[in-house]
């Protein structure tokens, strides 16, 4: 059981429990007629499903703070149970389920440092760095010199096999930067 606090003590960035699930408070706004009842209008994101919703809470209500922490860990390997990570300070190892890793697997390379989100000490999600560097394993031959055009072609990434669109001047063996939020190419890495 997490700490119980008044809704007035909750601010942006806090994590709370609603309907048994952990939610990130994305936005909170206090509304109240001068002489009347207070309400908190919040926007919250479910840390398990990433769904967001608007939730109105009446002033004076209590909420449970979720015991959620981001711990930086190193990705080790994948096995039948999921993805294994190691906490570099305690050498403790945790396994994150396939469902919790989701499409983040496309940018997850061995030995990469990522944030693992723990809820009641159980891993529930990853937080990848905003940008990762990946190598192109296969793509159609490059069209040299055309660095202006916005024409894209698919490229397969080394290590994960994921496909992302890249500009047509990219070649096999190029190291490219990818925004993990938008899954878009953001530049070549020299």
């Amino acid at each position: 059981m997490g700490t119980i606090v008044g809704i007035g003590e909750i601010s942006k960035g806090n994590k709370v429990i609603f309907d048994g699930a952990p939610w990130l408070v994305v936005e909170v706004n206090f509304v109240k007629p001068g002489k009347g009842n207070a309400f908190y209008k919040t926007r919250v994101q479910n840390l398990l499903t990433h769904n967001t919703l608007e939730k109105t809470i009446r002033g004076g209500e209590k909420v449970e703070v979720a015991d959620v922490a981001d711990v930086e860990m190193q990705y080790m390997y994948r096995d039948a149970n999921g993805y294994a990570f190691m906490d570099q300070s305690t050498y403790e190892q945790v396994t994150v389920s396939n469902a919790a890793v989701g499409t983040d697997k496309d940018f997850l390379l061995e030995n990469m440092m990522v944030n693992v989100t723990l809820w009641n000490n159980e891993p529930i999600a990853l937080r990848l760095p905003n940008t990762v560097t990946m190598e192109i394993d296969y793509t159609e031959p490059a069209i040299k010199g055309d660095t202006q055009s916005r024409v894209m072609k698919p490229a397969k990434l080394k290590g994960t096999g994921a496909e992302v669109p890249v500009p047509i001047f990219c070649a096999i063996g190029d190291k490219i930067a990818i925004n993990t939020q938008t899954r878009e190419y953001s530049g070549r890495v020299k």
Binding site: K32, P33, N37, F39, R58
Partner: peptide
């Protein structure tokens, strides 16, 4: 009822 009217008013 008063709270319902207040929420409709502010919202």
């Amino acid at each position: 009822r008063a709270a319902a009217l207040d929420l409709i008013l502010t919202r």
